[in-house]
């Protein structure tokens, strides 16, 4: 089995609405994948298809070498899922629920209960889940997804409701899983947060996959300019030197800082010029196009192509 996830030309139709249209991708083990798109772009449908909760109208899906909707459960034992807005049976305690899920997965409840510790819920383990805050429910959701050392994790909006410290520890857990060879699929609106933590980005729009690749690859395709900020020691002169005015594309940020847009191939040359012959500088900041910008770019180009 070369790929953990193999999606081939998959479409899913709900009556008139085609929620996913002709999507194909393959994900190797040990990759963290960001699934990005507006609400209604088809992210959740895609996750449900990968879980085998719904059948594709067309195309085929292989998860850990198995068709997830076929009713075979070998693959599901090695799969963790955190739904968007996770909810639990409010009457039971955190410990009872986690043991229940562990038994269903064929894992020992004792081992699963250690996960409560890991997500910082040990103190609340014997409280009823009905009394939990949103963040605590989310943590319990994460704990149940981690039962049985999954080889594939599907996390739908995993960090909503988590405070910054918990977000950090959440991504540490994801990192650990990835290092063990698990494929992790994250969907999120918080693009900046995903940026440094993903090996691959899949952008969805209106059921179509508009981009699929590493952040670097997408940057090369998109050819978006890199932003370069210079902090000038002397303050901004009345008129910028000609060579700095290379495309006319510079913006004053304040009295000391100016910002340039440099195309990918001009970037190095521009920086060299600044270092060699430019004015005295306090600082240089180089900001490659963010995931936010890439996302906007790919959506725009797809909308234009329609």
């Amino acid at each position: 089995m070369k790929h953990t996830v193999q999606v081939d030309n998959v479409s899913k139709r709900y009556g008139q609405l085609e929620a996913v249209r002709g999507v194909s991708f393959a994900l190797p083990p040990g990759e963290t994948v960001a699934l990005v798109g507006h609400n209604g772009a088809g992210k959740t449908t895609l996750m449900k298809l990968m879980l085998g909760l719904i059948h594709p109208s067309r195309g085929s899906i292989q998860i850990l070498g198995e068709n997830p909707a076929a009713g075979e459960f070998a693959a599901r034992r090695r799969l963790g899922y955190l739904p968007e807005n996770v909810s639990f049976n409010a009457g039971l305690t955190g410990r009872e629920l986690l043991s229940f899920y562990a038994r269903l997965k064929g894992d020992s409840p004792e081992r699963a209960l250690q996960l409560l510790d890991r997500v910082g819920l040990a103190a609340a383990a014997s409280r009823r889940v009905g009394t939990y805050s949103k963040g605590m429910r989310q943590r319990l959701g994460l704990a149940q997804a981690l039962i049985g050392e999954p080889a594939l994790l599907l996390l739908d909006e995993p960090t909503t409701g988590l405070d910054p410290a918990l977000r950090q520890s959440f991504y540490e857990i994801v990192q650990e899983l990835r290092d063990r060879g698990a494929t992790v699929i994250l969907s999120s609106h918080a693009l900046t947060e995903l940026e440094e933590r993903t090996d691959r980005v899949i952008i969805m729009n209106r059921g179509l996959m508009v981009a699929n690749g590493s952040l670097d690859a997408l940057r090369r395709i998109a050819r978006l300019p890199t932003r370069i900020r210079l902090r000038l020691t002397e303050g901004r002169p009345a008129r910028m030197p000609d060579w700095l005015d290379h495309d006319g594309a510079w913006r004053p940020i304040n009295g000391h800082v100016v910002e340039f847009d440099a195309s990918p191939e001009r970037k190095m040359e521009f920086l060299r010029q600044v270092m060699q012959g430019g004015p005295a500088l306090d600082d240089i900041e180089v900001v490659p196009p963010t995931l936010d910008e890439l996302y906007a770019h790919f959506l725009r180009s797809q909308e234009d192509a329609r």
Binding site: K48, F73, L79, Y81, P83, F88, L104
Partner: peptide
Amino acid sequence: DRGTMLLLLSYPVA
């Protein structure tokens, strides 16, 4: 309705 079924059915249970 509550969403608990979605999670339950993602487990290896028919």
